[in-house]
Each structure stands twice: as C-alpha cells, then as structure tokens.
Amino acid sequence: MATTVYPVLCATDVGASAAFYREFFDFDVTFDSDWYVSLRHPDGAELAILDSTHPTIPEGYRERARGVLVNVEVDDVDAVAARLEAAGVTVVQELRDEAFGQRHVIVRDPGDVLVDVITEIEPSAEFLAAFGSTD
C-alpha cells in the first residue's frame, strides 16, 4: 500500500524551479542537491524537482514532461497573480472566473510546467449538482 504520493517535476534548472515554488507558494526545502530538490508545504503537500538529464531516469524518458498541470489552491489568487506578473513569470492564461467554481490564472514555471493557481468561488447552478455532498 502506498504511504506517500507526490509529483516529481523534471527541469533543466532544478534550483530555479525549486525557488519558484518556495517564493510564490511557500514550500520549504526538505532535501537539496544539485540534481534533486524535495519540497513540502506547511499543509503537508509535497513536490520534488529533478534534473531532467539525471541518469536515474531511464534513457528515452529524460525529456521534460508535457501535458502536466500542477494545481495550487490559494486564499487570494488575485494577490498571487499580481506577484507572479510583477516578477515576470510567464502567464499563459489570464486571470478569470470559471462557471465550475474557480477563479484562476495559469502560469509557466521555470521548468516549463503549467501551474494553475486557483481560488475556489461559488459554482454556477449548472455545476453545483456535480459537487459531492460534504456531509
């Protein structure tokens, strides 16, 4: 049985990617080397950054992942979006509200991974029924 599950994101600049998650999303470093950095958020979420060329990754799989979207829920997406933009982080989808209950912005981290920064909002009546009961 699994004891922990967390994503490991491949990057060409491990330090820059780790710094991104530390600076903008309050992750703390739990292990730090030149090829791998393990991060933990105060709420318990974990994330790691791995050098995409490291030999622990089998030949033929050392390219950076495409099609990965990391969701980060925050209390105030508007404030985080403003900090990200002021720092020059690439915004790939502008801040907007979604009928399914999110206000969000999508940015690109230094390793080209998409990061969807989200604050939950009230969903439209159409989507309300899709949410399970919290009872």
Rank of each mutant, 00 (worst) to 15 (best):
A81E: 07
A99M: 07
V91F: 05
A65H: 13
P58D: 09
S17N: 09
V14S: 07
R66K: 15
V105S: 05
G111V: 11
H54A: 08
H54M: 00
L9N: 09
V77C: 12
S52I: 00
D135C: 01
L69I: 12
G88V: 11
A45P: 02
V113D: 08
A65C: 04
I106N: 10
T134G: 12
T119P: 01
V80L: 03
Y36Q: 04
P123K: 05
E85C: 02
A125M: 03
F20W: 10
V29P: 04
D34C: 02
D112Q: 11
T30M: 13
S52V: 01
V115D: 10
R96G: 14
A79H: 10
R103L: 06
V107F: 09
V89G: 05
L84H: 01
V72K: 00
F27M: 09
F24I: 02
F100E: 08
E59P: 14
P110T: 12
E46H: 11
H54V: 07
V74I: 04
V74D: 01
V80N: 02
P58A: 12
V68G: 11
N71S: 13
R66N: 12
E63I: 02
A99I: 00
V8H: 03
R108G: 04
T134E: 09
L128Q: 15
A81K: 04
G67Y: 10
G60E: 05
S33W: 07
L95W: 08
A11C: 10
D13F: 02
H104N: 15
F25A: 08
